[in-house]
């Protein structure tokens, strides 16, 4: 018996659907993956905009997760001995701390932080790496580097 689903925003449903799309791909169900992709694209199109938000608003939201979100979730997951959730929380908290320090460093160094070097994102845990070459394995989730993708600088 499923409990009642809580209301989800379009942005949340977009992430839910790409999660299920990836899960289908892992099971080599390419047709189902493609269908979840269509659904994800629909919700991505309707994503709630955060127009006019500032850099500091973004940092504040990360800080909120670090100050309370992870604490709350960790306490509940520990109480219920939910190993899967604890695993996700460990990765997420580490990635969030690194994102915070990256954004703080960018505030000080501006573009010199990223000029003449590359930015990579780990497809599995979200780890962001600034440097020439990505590490051979992700320091957070330990996936091999072929899952760590370069993010291009795009000219307008």
């Amino acid at each position: 018996m499923e409990d009642d689903m809580r209301e989800m925003t379009h942005g949340e449903l977009a992430a839910m659907c790409t999660n299920l799309q990836k899960a289908c791909s892992k099971q080599l169900r390419s047709e189902e993956a493609q269908l979840f992709g269509l659904l994800a694209a629909f919700y991505e199109e309707g994503r709630e905009k955060q127009e006019g938000c500032g850099y500091q608003d973004l940092l504040d939201t990360i800080n909120e997760d670090l100050a309370s979100g992870y604490q709350r979730a960790n306490a509940v997951a520990s109480k219920n001995q939910d190993r899967g959730s604890l695993r996700a929380l460990v990765w997420g908290e580490k990635v969030s701390k690194l994102l915070k320090s990256l954004l703080v460093r960018y505030e000080k160094q501006k573009n010199s932080l990223l000029d003449g070097t590359n930015v990579y994102v780990c497809e599995i845990c979200g780890f962001v790496y600034v440097g020439e070459q990505p590490p051979a394995i992700c320091p957070i989730c330990k996936v091999p580097s072929f899952k760590i993708q370069a993010v291009q600088k795009e000219a307008i």
């Binding site: 939910d82 990765w91 845990c125 962001v128």
Partner: peptide, 12 residues
């Protein structure tokens, strides 16, 4: 990065 973390939360 945040999209991937959100997906992982839903997964678990």
């Amino acid at each position: 990065s945040n999209h991937i973390m959100a997906e992982d939360c839903y997964r678990e």
